[in-house]
Design a protein around this nucleic acid. Sequence first.
DNA 1: CAATACACGTGACCC
DNA 2: TGGGTCACGTGTATT
Lengths: 235, 235
Amino acid sequence: MNESDFEVLSDDSRVKPGCRTLQRNGSSLVLDSERGELVEACVSAKRKMAPAERNVDALKNHSEAERKRRARINAHLDTLRGLVPEAKKMDKAALLAEVINHLRKLKRNADEAMQQYVIPTYADEIKVEQEQGEVLDLELETMKASICCDYRPGLLSNLRQALVNLGLIVLSAEVATFEGRMKSIMVLTRCHEGDETLCQFLSNSLHLALCSIVNQFSTSEESPRPSVSNKRRRA
Amino acid sequence: MNESDFEVLSDDSRVKPGCRTLQRNGSSLVLDSERGELVEACVSAKRKMAPAERNVDALKNHSEAERKRRARINAHLDTLRGLVPEAKKMDKAALLAEVINHLRKLKRNADEAMQQYVIPTYADEIKVEQEQGEVLDLELETMKASICCDYRPGLLSNLRQALVNLGLIVLSAEVATFEGRMKSIMVLTRCHEGDETLCQFLSNSLHLALCSIVNQFSTSEESPRPSVSNKRRRA
DNA sequence: CAATACACGTGACCC
DNA sequence: TGGGTCACGTGTATT
């Protein structure tokens, strides 16, 4: 719609789009949202009333196209609702926020999964982070813990004892040694469900435990039982 | 806005929300989008003009709140634009479609990565295959052996003994248990270099050994040493 | 001029 | 009833 079309409505006072028009005793009032007051909107005779039906058609097509556009967007939003867990009944903004979170989380996991083979490095490293795990359609709140340090007898038993003390179950563990160095990556879960703060607390506690294991001197012999093998778990 | 407020605009013809109001010679025309034609909207004196300023304030707050809402949604959409590659200059609908595609792709990759994570299945499986391994620039003739079966005490020690008997070194091992099942994937190499036929022979022998381990009854207690941890290897 | 996409204000509806 | 979301039709700009 251009300037001349604009004058079809009013030729002295600009009618802003979406302005609510109030009418009293035949005179027209429009809400000027900038000045925050009602202003008069004098109405003159329309310049060209001949293409009135054309305008009607155009408006009808326009509104219908816009409706189609909204439907497309909302359909995609519904698809996203089905794709992202725990976002079923969120409003649009919260849904998009959840999509962003999920996207970032998946991206992080994908990047980490790209580091496929576990090979010990020469730099000590301890990392503990929470993540969403899916095991056979079971949604589990899991933690991925990785540890890289010099290998010494008793280290794995200490590690195992630390996990037992924290009430953690080892879902899977990978351990590799090379040139006297050791690296292990474990996927852990809690014995019982807990709230977020407990999860965070466990995460921090695990990190501290791993640090103490690496730094303390070895006092015990090798564990009499497989120290990194998983605890059997029956649902 | 209730029924009485509605009549402020017209008391005979219902003005639908968003209907474009055209005005000619002081008389008001509204577009009836259902019937697709312009209908007259007779204007009567407004019932209560007293709360006019309140209505103005309410409308101003309302429109501003709506603007804030749109800003939040668009901010999230922009974030998504930055998060999803090749979606920088797409319109809203296409952007959301790309987000859906990307989300599904990442989810697929995550599922595949989760299959990189060793998770026991309910079907027994023994697989041995030769492959070229690279460990810190060292070209090694390696074998990847995987075993999935019911877990029972002594199984890991039997496994370890079988590897020792075959003169195999465990470069890395991953073991997981779930619901009484066990799965392990090991990357193995030979103690000394040998020719191709020996390699093939070892591969077959290992496969037989794994089969016998799975099928035989447990006769020994758990290994007195960590049975799945790697042998330390110094180059 | 078409078609298209976006922002806007607004009515309806829901706690 | 006030503060929130949503769908609507429309004005405007881009192509």
